[in-house]
């Protein structure tokens, strides 16, 4: 007689913990062939609110760490992901119905992307910062700083897509509330387990699963969210509404990016869109 599996309960990832949705709701997640994979937590607006509180609480500490330290932590996520690659390949195959080779290539790319971004932590300031030669006796330096708490609607790619939108935000010191792909939420929670065991402080990344149309408007109108990345919003009208709601506190907005090739090298834009430039002046004298 074969052994009965112990199935995993997929919950949310908020503030370093894995709570169920406070609403008590869940929704059915099927595999590519329409068979039940699991019940995912269906996050509510209150879960989103809690996630923002957790992200805000984590922001000071995370953005205050040295760039070198953030690099180490993000690199550590890559290491732990590498160690659990079999699990992720299996999950990707199950949820997306893709070949083993394809699943492997996505996991490879996700790990490599984390490593790529890890290296940016202590270089982005050098690339986008400036010493400014003002016409006067002043020291004048512009440096990038993270915008703060960023809400993200992740694209469909359950692992590579998610990593590609989250890594560029946290590497620069932002903290994140991400709504996982509605169709493929399970990998996001498993990735949460990786982050939770990678020295990433609780609250730096918070993962919600559920309905984008239900949760995203609460994040877009939230006055303590500094930016919103609409990459995964597929409905153009919803994207426009979310952008309009974001105007309430002038969130930095990244518009949807349909057709993104997630395997291509990303460039700087995902980092710079959620960076502020601070310019400091000081007189030069004796």
């Amino acid at each position: 007689m074969s052994r009965i599996d112990v199935r995993k309960t997929y919950k949310l990832y908020i503030g370093g913990q894995f709570p169920r949705s406070e609403s008590g709701r869940s929704y059915v997640v099927n595999d590519a062939k329409g068979r039940l994979l699991a019940n995912a937590a269906q996050a509510s607006r209150k879960d989103a609110r809690d996630a923002v509180v957790a992200a805000r609480a984590a922001f000071g500490g995370w953005s205050g760490r040295t760039a070198y330290n953030r690099a180490q932590v993000v690199y550590r996520i890559a290491e732990v992901l590498e160690g659990r690659r079999d699990q992720f390949e299996a999950e990707l195959r199950a949820s997306e119905g893709i070949t083993p080779a394809k699943a492997r290539s996505y996991v490879d790319a996700a790990i490599d992307r984390l490593v790529w971004y890890a290296g940016w932590a202590d270089k982005i300031t050098q690339v986008v910062g400036n010493a400014n030669p003002v016409a006067g006796p002043y020291f004048n330096l512009s440096t990038p700083e993270p915008s703060g708490v960023i809400a993200v609607v992740a694209p469909r790619g359950p692992l590579l897509g998610l990593v590609s939108v989250v890594a560029p935000l946290i590497i620069t010191g932002n903290t994140v509330v991400v709504i996982a792909s509605e169709q493929h939420p399970l990998t996001a929670i498993t990735l949460g387990e990786v982050m939770a065991t990678s020295d990433l402080p609780g609250g730096v990344v918070n993962v919600l699963t559920g309905s984008v149309a239900e949760i995203a408007p609460w994040l877009a109108s939230h006055m303590d969210v500094n930016g919103i990345d609409l990459t995964g919003v597929e409905d153009a009208q919803l994207a426009a509404d979310l952008e309009a709601a974001s105007a309430d506190n002038l969130k930095r907005v990244r518009r949807p990016a349909p057709g993104t090739d997630w395997l291509a090298e990303p460039g700087l834009d995902r980092m710079t869109r959620f960076l502020e430039t601070k310019t400091v002046w000081h007189p030069i004298g004796v």
Binding site: G136, P283, G285
Partner: peptide, 11 residues
């Protein structure tokens, strides 16, 4: 302990 003077501001 007297307040310092910032050269640029003073000039």
């Amino acid at each position: 302990g007297l307040p310092g003077v910032d050269q640029v501001g003073c000039e």
